[in-house]
Design a protein around this nucleic acid. Sequence first.
RNA 1: GCCGGAGUGGUGGAAUGGUAUACACGAGGGACUUAAAAUCCCUUGCCUUCACGGGCUUACGGGUUCGAGUCCCGUCUCCGGUACCA
Length: 1025
Amino acid sequence: MPAYRPEEIEKKWQAHWKQHSTFKAANHSDKPKYYVLDMFPYPSGAGLHVGHPLGYIASDIVTRYKRLRGFNVLHPMGFDSFGLPAEQYAIQTGQHPALTTEKNIETYVQQLSSLGFSYDWSREVRTSDASYYKWTQWIFLKLFNSWYNLDTNRAEPLTGLTARFAESGSAGIRAAGDDGDRHDFTAGQWSMFSEKQKLAAVLPYRLAYQQDTYVNWCPGLGTVLSNDEVKDGLSERGGFPVERRLMPQWNLRITAYADRLLAGLDQLDWPDAVKEMQRNWIGKSIGAEVTFPVMAGAFPASAGNNPAAAGSNPAETGNNSVEAGSNPASAGNNPAEAGSSSAEAIKVYTTRVDTIYGATFLVLAPEHELVDVITTPEQRTAVDEYIAATKRRSERDRMTDVKAVSGVFTGAYAQNPVNGAPVPIWLADYVLAGYGTGAVMAVPSGDQRDYLFAQHFNLPIPAISDAQQGLDQQADPTKEGHYINSGIINGLTYKEATQKLIAFLEEKGLGKGKVNFRQRDAIFGRQRYWGEPIPIYYKDGTAYGIAESDLPLVLPEIDEYKPTETGEPPLGRAQDWLYKGQYPYELSTMPGWAGSSWYYLRYMDPTNEARFVSEEAEQYWGSVDLYMGGAEHATGHLLYARFWYLFLKDLGLVSSGEPFQKLINQGMILGRSNFVYRVNWVVQTASREAFDQLGTEQIVPVIFASKGRLQTLSDGTPFLYPESEDFLQGIMEAFQAKYPDLTLAYRGITPIHVDVSLVNNDILDTEAFMNWREEYKNARFMWEEDGGNYICGVEIEKMSKSKYNVVNPNILIDKYGADALRLYEMFLGPLEQYKPWNTNGISGVGGFLKKFWRLFHPEDGPLALTDEPATPAELKVLHRAIQKAQEDIEKFSFNTSVSLFMITVNELTALKCHKRAILEPLVLLVSPYAPHLAEELWQELGHEAGSISHASYPEFREEFLVEDVVTYPLAINGKVREQMQFAAAATAAEIETAVLASDFLARHGEGKSAKKVIVVPGRMVNVVI
RNA sequence: GCCGGAGUGGUGGAAUGGUAUACACGAGGGACUUAAAAUCCCUUGCCUUCACGGGCUUACGGGUUCGAGUCCCGUCUCCGGUACCA
């Protein structure tokens, strides 16, 4: 083969690999194992753009490198093939989502194959295949039939729990979850329960449980969404508004694992950013739960509509008062006498129990269950109105409107448990029903939100610490100093006070230390069609798991993919879809993250029909050694997958501690958008008649101004240079001549995205542009003043179809080859960094590949290598390359490896080296990056076809790098002035003597003498004067 | 606000505390060619000088050090995440 022809050799080797299953991995081997995993894609209709393969290329390089280093590597690929877009498309077109999905997967497989990835395709999984989701459903049933025992700190089968119920009732059982949902019973009562009652009693213990839950309901999509599927109050897919709604939902008790998910992060080799995001998401906080008893009876201060209006107005004692008397109890009407304790009590959660003496009011979430009970008749109307108003405000409003203070007084008072002071109870939507107890003790001097609230409603803001400052301006949450106005903790420090208060509250039974998590249980149902059916049926209104032997529960065919007329999920349309012919199935399906939470396990043993993965395969492959994927999955997929893994581990079904040992987030490749600048016109008619006469013809000239014709204001508004406006004058005059009844006026410039394929080096192909859009076919251009080109504007944005900046890898592969594309994507910059795409640079790596080829095929002739022994200079080039290529790949620095290869080839070209002894090892070095080229050359070198994939990496030998002579930079006070050569063996003292003996100082020392000489052996010499 | 990360030529970027700007793109000049493509050679951080050379430069201001793009303190800007979380 003469010249380098990627289009020929790449097809040849891709076919060879496929035919010979070159990359098939065995589940048994004497070699050490290595598992390289890519986050599997959702097969969208748009196919891959150049940004998608970045991570796949990097992981493929590691895979091929590890094979050369003697590992048995598992490197699979599959498809996360359940999902919303296929279903939305199905609703519009009636086409079954399975068909679109199948078609899209075909495109993906074709695109991935054309990049030369070394996947073991025999292990491909698809989450929408019944043979796969059978096991997703099976894991769900395991969750359904398990509970979390806090005494053993792990999940256990439900059978153990019911056995304990039968023996000793519910007493003494500590289970993860909310005890408030459960009821106490004795063994005797349990034995008297009906089956239905037993199941109802067990339900709140299950790890997969059904409960009325506040959900993110998205009317636009007709389904609920998880928190990580909602961005800024809109659905991530489609951008529809999302609202809060109370609905019965399936949940997974991920909160049982919060502590273990948090602790496990410490051992993982993951990016700090991702670990930190997971920590924040789990949101562990250590604090205390404190009980404030509600005061019963008509309370004098509640006579008015607002406590501030009543005679005992606490605010009158001063917003900034530091007197103990700022407590309403000391005001005129002493409520402590009027009210006595009632049966009700409000539990608050606080991380700052030390500030409790500064708690001058309580705030409940509007959804709090006691609101109805405690609201006084006088306040009833105001409270009802406030609750209604809160409901009307969508989640979105609440988020964009954070600063606005709103709230309402309930008329009720509670008693501060540490000093008996009555504190008014308010409602406000800044308190969230879903966190802590849904109630807070407000400490306006220590918390800014409480401060703003107190200020707005004129409530007192007493200081509680001698270190607090600026309370007339804002809250001061300091933990420094000593407490004041604080009863039993006066004079104490933060630590002392916290301990003393918790002890005091625990003794009185009014509080206890408590750990809280921000994380909620994961809502597991979606009211959609294209997902795994939840394997639950209903008998007499009670949920039962279907028998494992009846799995998979196959997704039924339906006529339309929309909700039913009665508002049930699409599965409600399925005809005769009943368990055992009589019991209705659960109609919601699993969320998108169900199938992706365990797919990496299925790859280990993808066709096993008896088990989700065989014990042997699971134990052989263990956990994933390298997981490559996008940072957008930091708190979704990566958390859920860890949760499922810990659960499976509790049941003894998997053997490692964590599923993904090392994680790398490849950075996003951004698009480089091009803009043209259209001149805007306004046409004014003299009369209505003049306008009517025009008809429909296009009369406004379409003019585009080149970038050099524009200036941009600091806010980004573009406008024409005045001299360029003269250009428009002629056009306006010509227009005037043609349409005397009309006037044409210039009204600024609008930048418009232009397809990047019509642009080269920011120069617009104006011919192609005019053919691009019908309305541009008569466009005129204001060229650059000098060159006569049309220069486009540039912006770096996310790649997307609507911005016309998507670059299709297929086109680049056709033009430059897959090896060039692989190299170029790696060459762009550090893997983890966000970086813009610029197709222009690819010619550089294209040139490199040709040069590399010419080392073997001089003048693009036939293979012509000599068997001459290599010179020291050539060996040095080779072994430096071996050393550095290894180092770079081990630290995932692929961009520097590519430039290393370029330097190496440049140097060998300069040395006119065509020696087998040098070039054969070089083929191995390059093979992970440019596998097709390497295969071709390897075969030409006389090796068996395809054998390079399992050859051995060349061995680095230090001795070839040893130099006899080292060139040292000589510096004066850190500034390099000259170079000098020394024998490699020279000692620091010898070098110092030689430098001082030379005329170096005389020439650069400004007549001063050396104070000190620093010699760094092998590095440099610095003379201090 | 809080938590991460990043600021180096016209551009993407390189640099275990030790010669800043490797490698590549782009640009300019030249060779080959009827021409173009392809290929090859030279120049290319800024200022100064006919030249040799000299000075300056890693967002900005300080500091540590014989020596700082790299470490420390402060400021600014950009990107990502997250938030009435009590």
